[in-house]
Write a protein that binds this DNA or RNA. Structure first.
Lengths: 205, 205
DNA sequence: CTCCCTGTTGGCCCAAAGTCTAATAACCCA
DNA sequence: TGGGTTATTAGACTTTGGGCCAACAGGGAG
């Protein structure tokens, strides 16, 4: 699929700043994609590609905070490092509340920026791993029939086959069959593992 | 024990500001405890009391960020709303990274402040509930003997009594006894519930 | 109309887990 | 030294869960 080396996306409307940032990051061994317009980035960005975003706050058309909101609305979880010269405290607070990883002010110390970017890339990697595990679980879950899903919820709540049968208006034998299919489709060998999978899904909702 | 109405702790070295804030919050129906020195608050603060903290940033002796750090080191999870007239962006970012709920600038809009405080109190309530549940689980866990704890970990990993016995160098019958005691002491009726409890503990570590 | 999926049920057998009573041994504390 | 905790094991019995084979009914797709 996509190559797995992360890309640092840089969005800044000042071409000189953009060029300077790109040079700095490339010299630090990072792969960089530079955008001079937030719209250009927003449209081209593939949220499945690993990386992070270095974002100027004040830009024409769509400012940094709006882009942050647009990305979130789009379902992208890319970690954002803000980098700005003209921000104020309320903006920085809004950005951080919105999940930004850091909020740096220009002129920025090179080491601070690189440290923030590396932290963002690490966060992206972790989040990506976690999401792919959750996707895998979701996929297994979607292979269940409606009845099997019902049985699943009763099983992970700790009920006996007998009780489940009673609740669902059927007999124990039937529940056993559904239950076996659930275990098979979810690829687990024990109720313990099954509960762990379902608990994993709850942590994000 | 402690009465359960939350208290808004206000710390500001300016007596006039302190008085004004206290009046505002009291008129909004909140219980207020005012401190003119961060040290005074730090020493008197009981982290088991429900409430939140409204904190000035610039104070002599111990500034807001340092107090935030000291509270965290002390194990207090009280939500903090910063309120300051002389802060800068790096400070606000540090505060937010440190877990502050909000970071407001003076002069502050009364409604903004009250909204932030109410959010902080709500967060405190939620966190308090969650922590007391975790404490309860920890307490049950501490009632287990070392051997029972060993058996517990094997059980929640989905192993059979037979396998556990083999791992621990004993026989299935012994495991059954330990297992029954674990279920009793943890106050659960099924492996599913047991797994849920142990997973709950992992989410915070 | 036939095939596949879904949901259902039965019988048979075995494995695993839970219950109850009872006993033994090591250990620490008073 | 006597008592409590912990860890161990035994026997006997019941309940629950899982595996295998087989069967039937309803509904949707080709």
């Amino acid at each position: 699929m996509s190559d797995n080396s992360p890309i640092v996306f840089v969005v800044d409307d000042d071409p000189d700043v953009l060029k300077g940032l790109a040079r700095l990051l490339r010299s630090a061994g990072l792969e960089v994609a530079a955008f001079s317009s937030p719209h250009a980035f927003l449209e081209l960005h593939d949220s499945s590609a690993p990386g992070c975003l270095v974002l100027d706050l004040a830009m024409p058309g769509l400012n940094g905070l709006e882009l942050q909101g647009a990305l979130k609305a789009k379902g992208s979880a890319i970690p954002i490092v803000f980098l700005t010269g003209r921000g104020d405290i309320p903006m920085s607070v809004q950005a951080m509340k919105g999940g930004a990883l850091d909020f740096l002010t220009k002129p920025v110390n090179d080491e601070d920026l690189l440290r923030a970017i590396n932290a963002a890339l690490e966060k992206d990697r972790i989040g990506r791993e976690s999401r792919s595990e959750l996707d895998e679980i979701q996929q297994r879950l979607s292979a269940l029939t409606p009845r099997e899903r019902e049985v699943l919820t009763h099983v992970v709540s700790g009920q006996l086959n007998k009780q489940i049968a009673n609740d669902l208006g059927t007999v124990e034998k039937t529940i056993k069959v559904h239950r076996a299919r659930v275990m098979e489709k979810m690829k687990v060998n024990s109720v313990a593992e099954l509960v762990r999978l379902t608990e994993r899904l709850k942590t994000i909702e």
